[in-house]
């Protein structure tokens, strides 16, 4: 099998905030009835986590699960295991209306690390990113500039952002520009 490579091969930029292309990540889109016992069991078997509440993301040692819409979840797993887990989920949900797709190679992941991370994202996303409105455990699907994206926080100073791989290079450039030294408020 050919060697899988992420969109920018781990490129990073050091501005006021560090932007890193976070490499390969296993991602599975799972659509179905989120209240069904079969689906809850399948998600628990795949990532060891329960179904997150509306616009929440759960993280655990086996991966993560994010609420994407009333009938859609995004499972975050190891890249190498994504295909096998997708097959397991499809097997577990046989007979139930659902869709499980391994989208790992269709996505790019970025880490935005630094105290000004909120300010960087707020330049392009029409979202209230104040600590009172958005914190660890929240996920927001929105746009960054003109690109569809979703992001969440892994700690107080780090955001993870996913977007389509096809626009990954532009997203990196956009974030790098937004995080330029001297472009963030002085109180940071």
């Amino acid at each position: 099998m050919s060697n899988a490579v992420s969109i920018l091969n781990g490129a990073s930029s050091n501005g006021a905030v560090k932007i890193t292309e976070a490499g390969l990540r296993g991602m599975i889109t799972l659509r179905g009835d989120l209240s069904s016992a079969q689906l809850i069991t399948a998600v628990s078997a795949a990532v060891g986590l329960g179904i997150p509440a509306q616009r929440k993301v759960n993280h655990g040692p086996m991966g993560g699960v994010a609420w994407m819409s009333p009938d859609e979840l995004l499972l975050l797993v190891d890249y190498d295991k994504a295909a096998a887990i997708t097959a397991d989920i499809s097997g577990a949900l046989t007979g139930e209306h659902h869709m499980a797709v391994n989208v790992s190679d269709a996505r790019a992941v970025f880490a935005i690390k630094g105290v000004g991370g909120r300010e960087v994202l707020a330049k392009g996303a029409p979202v209230d990113l104040s600590p009172e409105a958005f914190g660890i455990g929240d996920i927001r699907r929105t746009r960054i500039g003109q690109l569809a994206a979703a992001f969440w926080m892994t700690d107080d100073e780090t955001f993870e952002l996913v977007c389509f791989r096809s626009v990954g290079a532009f997203m990196f450039d956009w974030l790098t520009n937004a995080a330029r030294e001297g472009s963030l408020p002085e109180y940071l």
Binding site: Q54, V127, R140, T142
Partner: peptide
């Protein structure tokens, strides 16, 4: 009403 977000028109 589907995801509970209050967002601006551009979204």
């Amino acid at each position: 009403p589907n995801c509970g977000v209050t967002a601006e028109e551009t979204e």
